[in-house]
Write a protein that binds this DNA or RNA. Structure first.
Lengths: 369, 369
DNA sequence: GGCACGCCTGAATCCAGCC
DNA sequence: AGGCTGGATTCAGGCGTGC
């Protein structure tokens, strides 16, 4: 049924297809049960209102594209069920689907999946190592996005490359929380010096998805192709793909990008990334009950004391004032020093002897590994 | 309206309430707009694997064809919307709600919240440091659960203890992914050697929730109280609570558990927000004679100057004009910036050295307490 | 050339209180 | 209720500049 727009260079016709046009209309050209995996990154319906400025008065370049605007949830749900229904039709019975979203839309995606008969296998968290902070201090840093992995039905024999994932993860089962940086630097596609697409996903994320849940030669469909991350990664990993994109500008960027991709199957075997030691906030020591609120800390010479508050901050009184804040800030304040490593400065009483609170951090670190 | 089952020991009547019975029925005894925060860990015995109850307590018969699978979700949705509607009624207009769930039910919870008019503030991931492995090797290790934090409406002035969270996290703002171990060891409640409740949550998780989004003395409601983790943590942190639990055995365990909790001393469970500090107009500084009219202020680099007027405004002259107004307005004008915190921008001469005028504000604030 | 420093930016539902 | 204003608010990483 697909007869054109194939990127035929370097592969068999139909191995690399980009279709330009409305997602549902072009999906209708794809044959029933012909696709092994679907990856869909639909509009998030962010509902952004006015501008947002950083504390340094620079403006945040938010997503204000028309394609992300929906009049209400009902409209968004209708849109979602429309394209998901077509996706279900083209998916092989043993196929699977991945969706990605944020709290704005992901709950609606999950419900639509369930209502249409898909069987959720996992939700997976993309933890961002470098998220944008919350500039006004009104919420938690929005530091993750959610992926949903679902098979076509409860009994489907979906593909899951368990051994490969475990081997590539220091022989530990791959967890449902994945850590990746945002897409930036060289990888981030530019057009006239500006980002070509506001929501380009990192290739590492797609690589994990495709390596985990497809075999070589599988057909991958992305109904919201954008600038073609799914296609680029699929080509590199020896998977076929169909990408559908409404915006010809995005599609043109994707074509150029994918042309340049040289498949490197050796990259399937990634060296495990050695991680730095995890940072342990002092709040955890209190939350976990290793030190209780009210406990008095002191410095090595026992000249200064501070009391632990229930929220993991310290309170100290000196001749020059009251000090409340983190172990570091209060440590600095009582010494009238510009900075202080609270973990090394503060001590607690253990069986009558002074012990650095850093011991407790080491304890928690050991537990986390 | 609540007239019994209060655990009156050690607190005022109504500070610690456990109600036994159906969640919706007992919620109806709670007054409108009387609760500051709701924490709900609802059951998700979906998908024909256990009992499912309608709001009227009748049991749903399991069926296994596709059509009724849909009706199964529909019944769960009906149940969810039933208790959430009551929760919404008892919640103060500036209150907030937390829900926790896994991929089986959390998407349905999120959609119900949005459809009922709640405003999602964050989804938060509880990353489990010691999750149960996936024994069959067919999926990713299910290593997290999802919490949703939502205010009653888009415009609600919800409580968020930003400063405390940041201070307890080594001065970095708290992210949406939280790492905690499962509830086990001493903390895990046992009954005849077996765990008393299958899904007991760690107290550390509840402590983070309550410290982040309630003030001392706030009323917390948990409509699925179980063995009372919410109550135990609330009591320890100086919050009041109402817990509703249908199972008398669980409720009995909860009562015993909470009786044994010794609250932290009051001074330990406060988390002052910088935003709550009293506002000091610059005019007071002049009125009190801390700076006299005619004094010249300057910025940190001593590149810009401004003269204090008798009315507490500033006057400055630049190449682009004359500026008169508040310390903030003039600070912004001389920098050609959209906004400026004059307290931090302007300095005065103290013994030959530049000192921020904010010092004088701190002085006046100290006097007020 | 190397390092230190500063600028730029990323799927963002981002203010509160008083008149 | 809407408008005005005081004043509170950011983390990690890539990259360019300048010494």
């Amino acid at each position: 049924m697909i007869h054109n727009e194939s990127m035929s260079k370097g592969g068999n016709s139909g191995d690399e297809t980009i279709l330009v046009g409305d997602c549902i209309a072009r999906l209708q050209e794809v044959a029933d049960k012909s696709v092994d995996l679907i990856f869909a990154d639909p509009p998030y319906n962010l509902q952004l209102k006015g501008d947002l400025f950083r504390p340094d008065d620079s403006r945040v370049d938010g997503v204000d594209n028309d394609w992300d605007k929906f009049s209400d949830f009902a409209t968004y749900d209708q849109f979602t069920r429309g394209w998901l229904t077509e996706c279900r039709r083209v998916l092989k019975d043993d196929g699977a689907i991945w969706l990605i979203g944020s709290y704005h839309n992901v709950f609606r995606l999950g419900v639509a999946l369930q209502d249409l008969g898909f069987w959720i296998l996992n939700d997976v968290i993309w933890r961002k190592s470098n998220p944008m902070p919350n500039f006004r201090g009104r919420r938690f840093t929005n530091a993750h996005e959610t992926l949903i992995w679902a098979s076509k039905s409860e009994t489907a024999k979906y593909c899951f490359n368990y051994d490969m994932l475990k081997a590539s993860n220091d022989d530990i089962q791959m967890r449902s929380d994945w850590l990746f940086p945002l897409c930036g630097g060289e990888e981030r596609l530019k057009l006239n010096g500006k980002k070509a697409h506001p929501t380009q996903k990192p290739e590492a994320l797609l690589a994990r998805v495709l390596q985990a849940t497809t075999k070589q030669g599988d057909m991958v469909l992305d109904p919201f192709f954008g600038t073609g991350t799914t296609g680029a990664v699929a080509k590199r990993l020896g998977r076929k793909f169909i990408g559908i994109e409404r915006d010809e500008t995005y599609a043109a960027v994707a074509r150029r990008r994918i042309e340049a991709v040289v498949p490197f199957e050796e990259r399937l075997t990634k060296s495990p990334n050695k991680r730095d030691e995890p940072r342990i906030p002092f709040g955890w020591v209190v939350e976990r009950g290793l030190l209780s609120p009210g406990t008095v800390l002191f410095d090595a010479q026992r000249r200064v004391t501070a009391e632990i508050q229930a929220d993991g901050t310290l309170q100290a009184t000196t001749l020059w004032g009251e000090h409340r804040g983190s172990i570091h800030k209060v440590g600095a304040a009582v010494q009238q020093a510009p900075a202080c490593n609270g973990w090394l400065y503060w001590h607690f009483d253990r069986d009558g002897r002074a012990a650095q609170i850093d011991l407790l951090r080491q304890h928690l670190r050991a537990e986390l590994t």
